[in-house]
Amino acid sequence: MSNNFTITDQQRDYSQYDLRGNPFPYSPVPAENPEIFCGQDHVSEKISSTVSSVLSTGKSKHLVVTGKYGNGKSHTLKYTRSLLRDRDDVVVGYVAQPGEGFLDIYHEFVYDLGFTHLQNLAYEFLASITQECTDESPASAAAMRSLIDEGDVLLSEIIPEAIKQLSDITKFADFARAIVHMIYEDTNLYAWQWLTAEGIRYEQRKEMEIHSALDDDTMGVRAFTALKNMLLELGYTAVFVFVDEFESIARLSPKNEQATLNSVRHLMDQNSSGLCLLFGCAPEVWQDVMSEYHAFSERIGQEVTLKPLTSEHLSDLIADYLSLERVDGGAEESLRPFTEESLNLILQRSQGNVRQILALCSRLLDDAADADYETISVDVVEEVI
């Protein structure tokens, strides 16, 4: 009985194509910080216009990106997010899918920000209070932490004023106490659990003098608005929320779907400044939302659709991916080893679906390297398909 398994960590050799490696993903799932955008100027222009108007005016504006499965919605949202994350005047959070309701959206958003980021925001707020109440003038979260650790600022001097001012800003005293407790070693995990809507016991809330539970959509909207208002007070321009796979709300019961959409609508109504929601949604679900939930869809009003790739977009996409692994001074032919004819067949078979294109190109390049083909011709594509 023969054993045909051959497992090795030896890399394939792509040097005959002037490539260091296979640039196409084996599993075409969007990278966390994509280096390449899939073209489609009308989409990038619409997103740029939406984001830029929020940044320049401070007024809230929202957008839905629609497109069929595999046409690049998640990739587009993550690419936009990666561009915004380079800015230090905004806060950006990504929600993979809306879950069972708005409270899940809120939870995923805060979780994406992370414990450390939220704790730093607490120190930032305390720094602003310290500048008002003492002779110290910390300019950052790190400077504030250092002053507290070294005993140059006593928490007893600033905490009562911090809670009072943050309660006034957010209109939510329990939220203010939870934020302040993010700096205490004994209670910061409880505060984090409360702020992420994970739920904590009554005794743990009592220790922080928090009276309410963050356990329904209404409280989620209230907490989200409180967080955004705190950020604007700290000088941030806007909060950007990317909600992917919004079509999954269609799997909820009609009652829960309506409750989720109503909560998002209330969030938009309560935040006319400093908020930008960008949704990725399947077109058929978005059409249903527009026809059945006018009050929600009217508040967004902006939609842009990712279409299947054209032959021009496909050539640009393949050339961009190949350039990631192209050896310096390598082939001038940006599409090598693919031929124009093979790309036309790939486009035809995939119907312009980005996910299928990338998966197919990854397989084709490996098979061509294994078989030592000089080019990936139509015959090679037909054999693999």
Rank of each mutant, 00 (worst) to 15 (best):
V243H: 10
A223H: 10
F224C: 09
E247K: 00
M230D: 09
V239G: 13
T237A: 13
F224L: 15
M230A: 05
F242R: 08
A223F: 14
F240T: 01
T237P: 05
A223P: 06
A213S: 12
T218P: 00
L227G: 10
S248T: 07
G235L: 02
D215L: 07
S212I: 09
G220Y: 09
H211C: 02
T237D: 04
F242P: 04
A213F: 11
S248D: 11
Y236V: 13
A226L: 03
G235V: 00
H211W: 00
D244N: 10
L234Q: 14
M230S: 07
E245Y: 13
G235F: 11
G235Y: 10
E247C: 03
L227W: 15
G220Q: 11
K228S: 02
M230E: 12
L231H: 10
L231E: 06
Y236I: 13
E233M: 02
E233V: 00
L214T: 00
A213Q: 11
A223G: 05
D244E: 11
F240M: 04
D217L: 04
V241C: 00
T237Q: 11
T237I: 05
E247G: 04
D215F: 01
L214F: 15
D216H: 14
F242S: 01
L214K: 02
F240P: 03
K228N: 06
K228A: 01
T237K: 13
E247Y: 01
F246H: 13
E233G: 00
L234G: 09
D217K: 03
A213N: 11
E233K: 09
F240Q: 06
D217S: 15
F246Q: 14
V243P: 06
S212F: 01
F242G: 00
R222W: 03
V221A: 05
N229D: 12
M230F: 06
M219Q: 15
A238I: 05
D217N: 15
E233W: 11
T237G: 02
L231C: 12
V239W: 07
G220W: 02
T218Y: 10
L232S: 12
V243A: 09
A226N: 01
V239D: 11
A226W: 03
F246D: 15
M219P: 00
L227F: 15
S212N: 13
L214S: 04
H211V: 06
H211M: 05
L227V: 09
L232N: 02
A213W: 07
A223K: 08
V243G: 05
E233I: 00
L234K: 06
H211A: 04
L232W: 00
S248F: 09
L231M: 15
V239F: 11
V239M: 15
F240G: 01
V221R: 02
V221H: 01
D216C: 12
F240Y: 15
D244L: 12
D215C: 03
D244T: 12
V243F: 10
D244Q: 10
F224E: 02
G220P: 12
L231N: 02
A226Q: 01
T225D: 07
L227C: 13
Y236Q: 02
R222H: 12
R222S: 07
V221I: 05
L232Q: 04
F242A: 01
H211P: 01
Y236P: 08
V239P: 08
T237R: 14
R222N: 07
L231V: 05
V241K: 00
